[in-house]
Design a protein around this nucleic acid. Structure first.
Lengths: 207, 207, 207, 207
DNA sequence: CTTTAACCGAGACGGTACGTCGTGTCTTAAC
DNA sequence: GTTAAGACACGACGTACCGTCTCGGTTAAAG
């Protein structure tokens, strides 16, 4: 997984061979914008964060932000991915069950503390607009869902898991429980939850 | 379930014996506000809905809205509960498993079409503010969660369900999957989901 | 001169012989309203004074104020007259010139300090509305103007003053200079002004 | 006299050598605001004029008005000066007496009709606030007062006028009578007043 | 000694305007 | 051609008062 999946994150598409005329995009500006967002999110909610505040904090014109991102959610999502950084590939596991456990624990660790809160706020803000929702879903959730779905499918094939279960539904129940828990007001995922979720997840799938 | 649970819905608290002075709250205004919200939500998202638009549509001063509700989410939630109306008590079921199936099907039917969309938008809007989140959770989700949790606990006691499973986690997985599905961009809950969810829910619990 | 000239000050008109049925006007309320206004005017300008603030300060319903006065200016004017109190009749003077000097000094003493400021603010507020302007003029300025005009006319007749001068214009110049001085930002009328005005006033008139 | 005296009228201060960054102030907006005010004042009083109405009429955001003027009075005063336009310098007169007559007749002609009403309303509105009062006084009355005061002083020196008279008081009496007359409800200055005032003014001064 | 009428306080009502904030766009000069 | 700066039209915010209304209650004269 890499955050290079993000549309607005990479200034030039891979096949952009022709030299662009004029002043090139300032990498400094981009970084100071993403950093400004991350610093501001320590103090305010995504809702209360404004493009103007970001521009001011980053010492950047509003135009520069609007040129590269379509709206606030897109910037924040980018900033979140930028801050989370590249996640190393998972070590191979002996069984799919073990792999799933690893995968879920890694995901939940990612959302410990402030990050979980921000993610949920981004997801919430994204609801207002179809396009933004797609943006969020495809740049963040989709890769996690796909990884899990593949592990489940593999487990079904190799006999670890029940074949009758709907993979899509299982994925919804697992990631849904995490999201829902965070959305219900839980400041963070507690110990009880993080230990029990993988166990119950396997309970649905196995035998 | 009754919408009388809503804080702002009932003008006088039950133990309000002392005669209220001054002009009493206008029931007409209250109703026209809630109706205006419901009519407007057919055309716009919760995000794009404004207090000013509600006031205008309802033929009411903005002050009147702010007098009785602290913010937009509270009005919309109230309007949603007002529109859903009182839900009749569930018929008793032979087994807890059957009761849970009924309960879930009823819940999902509630969220068919526009209502599901609105609920999710309300939940999303509520994320920005601790107080509003509590308001939403306690006036809507909590009662559903409690009903389900009680059924699960009863089922554990009478031997229908496994005792090892965490009731709280099961509830999160079940309602979480519904919420998450709607939040991922699904316009509505499809046939596949609505039939499979109760089955899988019981799969986690039973044996 | 008496402030009984004020329309709203006296609860019953002189020829109102028939006893009114129902609860009579509360003198207590009237006084607490006028007192409230005077106390509030020590802290705020007439512009910033609100009917609601008066009602609250006086411990009175807004309705009670609106029942007896048509608007803010009327109440404030009444409160001002109430606070200034009844002015004793002038002692007779040997000459009209002396009488005018007395009259002007008395008028300027009336407007020393806060009162001058308030009067000017009332006059200013009254400009917005024809009716209120008439109210102010007839209940306050007119009596002063008439007194001065009569003295001037008398002086013309007995040979003290020039007959060619326009009485109305002289009155305008004299009272106008006071009002204008206060309106130009002077906190109060200074010693120089108060001593010189009567002298110059007579200069216009005499010979 | 020139309306360039007005603080908010001129976009750049005289010694502003450093090139201004960002989008420059829109002259179009400024003009349409001032024009809107003048058009609206034909229909309503200064009191009833609202910033929102001006913005709407001018096709301009409220912010744009607030960016350049601190309050309603400032805009209206500016609009009044804009409408009155630049007044040509006075032709030289043989005597100071003649010059004063010219000066007063010119001033009174300026206030004929609607303008006098508006001026008085502006002056009235300005009373509520120290700063606004200064704004009005220094941008409008002061120049007239100074011109008259200079003529009087010159006349005293060349022997036309009495040396004993207080220049300041004379100015107050002259301009005060005009203002006071307009404030007392006179729709406009009548023939009688406009012909007599200069005569009596000289009467005070001469011999 | 009850009825009736006008008053009173409290406070909710439909409105209007306030002054502020944020949006996304546009217009400069600088680089 | 991009950038920082910042003005622009617009829309909504939440608040303050306006003047009106609707309650329960009080106070006195009339019946």
């Amino acid at each position: 997984m890499s955050n290079s999946a993000m549309k607005y994150h990479e200034p030039s598409s891979s096949d952009d061979q022709e030299k662009r005329r004029g002043r090139p995009r300032s990498e400094t500006s981009k970084k100071s914008i993403l950093n400004a967002v991350n610093r501001l999110l320590l103090l305010t909610s995504v809702k209360d964060l404004s493009i103007e505040a970001i521009a001011k904090k980053a010492g950047v014109g509003k135009t520069t932000i609007y040129r590269w991102w379509p709206n606030k959610v897109a910037v924040v999502l980018d900033a979140l991915l930028y801050q989370l950084g590249n996640t190393p590939a998972l070590p191979t596991s002996a069984t799919k069950a073990e792999a799933i456990t690893n995968q879920l624990e890694r995901f939940m660790r990612l959302l410990k503390g402030k990050n979980g809160k921000i993610l949920i706020e981004v997801m919430a803000e994204a609801q207002a607009n179809e396009e933004t929702l797609t943006l969020f879903y495809e740049n963040f959730m989709l890769q996690h869902e796909e990884t899990l779905a593949n592990l489940i499918e593999d487990g079904k094939e190799n006999g670890e898991f029940r074949k009758e279960i709907s993979t899509a539904l299982a994925v919804d129940m697992i990631y849904g429980s995490i999201v829902y828990r965070l959305m219900s007001g839980a400041e963070t995922l507690d110990q009880d939850f993080t230990t029990n979720l993988p166990l119950e997840a396997l309970n649905i799938l196995q035998k």
